[in-house]
Amino acid sequence: MYAQMVKSTGARVKSLDEMDPEERAFQVRIDADIKVEPKDWMPEGYRKTLIRQISQHAHSEIVGQLPEGNWITRAPTLDRKAILIAKVQDEAGHGLYLYCAAETLGVSRDEMTEQLLSGKAKYSSIFNYPTLTWADIGAIGWLVDGAAIMNQVPLQRCSFGPYSRAMIRICKEESFHQRQGYDIMMKLCAGTAEQKEMAQDALNRWWWPSLMMFGPSDQDSVHSAQSMAWKIKQNSNDELRQKFVDQTVPQAEYIGLKTPDPDCKWNEARGAYDFGEIDWSEFYEVLKGNGPCNKERLEARRKAWDDGAWFRDALMAHAKKREARKMAAE
């Protein structure tokens, strides 16, 4: 997902009896659906896992601006351009809400930026794929934002107050993203044969990476088990992936497109779509930094950070000077 394979403590989930009184009281509150707020006592593992997850989520929003920003100057109409700018601006906003939520846990913005730029912190694998045609902008809104929503809706109920509140805000804005993407796909599919082919090609390229967004099957993962016990995570990766497939396949059919998966078909008995095996080696390669655009994305972020340094410093110097002048006058 936007936060994939977030490491938790790595330890087995403790039972209430094994916990010391402080931790037990904490877990009891979580079980009772009482939100945890920044100043409340929390286990170190909970804090660290959340910092990892929220910052990874934030980095994904920020890096996610790059593939779409690529098409702002080439959007086919002024309307589409305005919409795309608004969407990319939203992604920046979502990144900022999330960074702020993470900061309440005691990590600074600069530390998080540093972790992204050094490659220590990850962002979603999906943003390491290139946007080759205009149809990719449609496919991203429809599929990538669609998958994101699937994951973010349950995160609104996350046990950590600031994260949950950020997710509520984000979810309110996200639905526009998916709809504008599908709208682009609908238009292309109602156009010339060439335009429709472009839409199909985009679906072909984005389908599997979108399914990978949910992360590997997590039935046996200790990290997932702990995150679920803490209510940082609500559903298993497979559960959300299945939901996404079930929702998306009919949407593709509606506009005359087909998923690139020959094994994708309705299973009457399960009441769900079966789908083929995901190539997990590709996923791990992209996570390791060997995707088509990993280098380019990080370089773009580093350049933005370095090129903006003088500006950040200048504004700070100006603010300090004005403050000093004001103090002197008083």
Partner: peptide
């Protein structure tokens, strides 16, 4: 509604308008 970083109050209001 949330928080943000800004060098001074004036910029904080401007950024808040864009972010929130």
């Amino acid at each position: 509604v949330g928080s943000l970083h800004a060098p001074d109050a004036e910029m904080a209001v401007k950024n808040a308008r864009d972010v929130y």
